[in-house]
C-alpha cells in the first residue's frame, strides 16, 4: 500500500518551525518509513503531486501568494495543521498590523536606515506578491484542523502529533508537550 503523504510550507514565517521538524533527529528515518513527503521545502518539490494526508503550515499570510499557497494546501490535504505561533496568530510579522501599509513599504524600501535606493522606487515587479493590508493567521483564511503552538513548537510535539494522525490515533498530547511557561 502506498504510504500517506505529508506536505509542508513556510508562509510568513522564519523557517524556525521547519528547523523544529528536522529537530526530531534520527526519528526522521522512522518518519520516512511512515510517510512520503510531497510539496515541501524539505525535498524541494514545488507542486503537489497528489492528495496528501497531512499539511503542515508555518507562518501566517502576509501577501497574496501566501493566500494562494494556503488555499492549495487546503484543497490537497485531508488534515491541515497550523504549526507555530506565526501560523496561529500572525506572530512577529503581525507586529506591522498597527502600522499603515504605506509606512511599511516606505520603511522597507525608502527610509530604513540600511536602505540604499537612489531611484526612490518601490520595487514593482509582477513576480513580487502584493502585501495584504495586514497579516492574517491561517485559520482566518481557510479552515484549520489542528493548532500546534510554540515558537517553534518542540520537535517532540510535532512528532507525537504527526504519528498520532498518521496512525489514526487521537491527538492527545501530554501536558509537558503543550506547556510553554
Amino acid at each position: 500500500m502506498a504510504k500517506p503523504k505529508v506536505a509542508t510550507t513556510s508562509l510568513a514565517g522564519c523557517f524556525g518551525c521547519h528547523m523544529s521538524i528536522l529537530d526530531i533527529d534520527e526519528r526522521i528515518l522512522k518518519l520516512v518509513e511512515l510517510v512520503d513527503f510531497d510539496k515541501s521545502p524539505i525535498d524541494d518539490i514545488k507542486k503537489f503531486t497528489g492528495r496528501c494526508a497531512v499539511g503542515l503550515i508555518e507562518g501566517g499570510c502576509c501577501n497574496e501568494e501566501n493566500v494562494e499557497v494556503l488555499r492549495s494546501f487546503r484543497e490537497h490535504c485531508d488534515v491541515l495543521i497550523s504549526l507555530g505561533d506565526c501560523a496561529i496568530m500572525g506572530g512577529i510579522p503581525a507586529l506591522r498590523n498597527t502600522i499603515p501599509l504605506q509606512e511599511c513599504y516606505d520603511e522597507a524600501y525608502l527610509n530604513g536606515p540600511t536602505v540604499h535606493n537612489p531611484s526612490r522606487q518601490i520595487p514593482n515587479d509582477p513576480e513580487l506578491p502584493l502585501l495584504l493590508h495586514k497579516v492574517y493567521p491561517c485559520h482566518e483564511v481557510v479552515k484549520i484542523d489542528y493548532h500546534l503552538a510554540g515558537c517553534p513548537p518542540p520537535a517532540d510535539t510535532i512528532w507525537e502529533a504527526l504519528v498520532a494522525l498518521l496512525t489514526n490515533k487521537p491527538v492527545a498530547l501530554p501536558y509537558e508537550l503543550v506547556k510553554y511557561d
Binding site: Q102, I122, H133, V141
Partner: peptide
C-alpha cells in the same frame, strides 16, 4: 474549506493603490 469572511480582493486593495 475556505473562510468565506476572508476577502482577498479587499485585502490587497491598498497595496494595489500603493504599488
Amino acid at each position: 474549506g475556505r473562510q468565506p469572511a476572508f476577502d482577498l480582493a479587499a485585502a490587497v486593495a491598498e497595496a494595489e493603490t500603493i504599488i
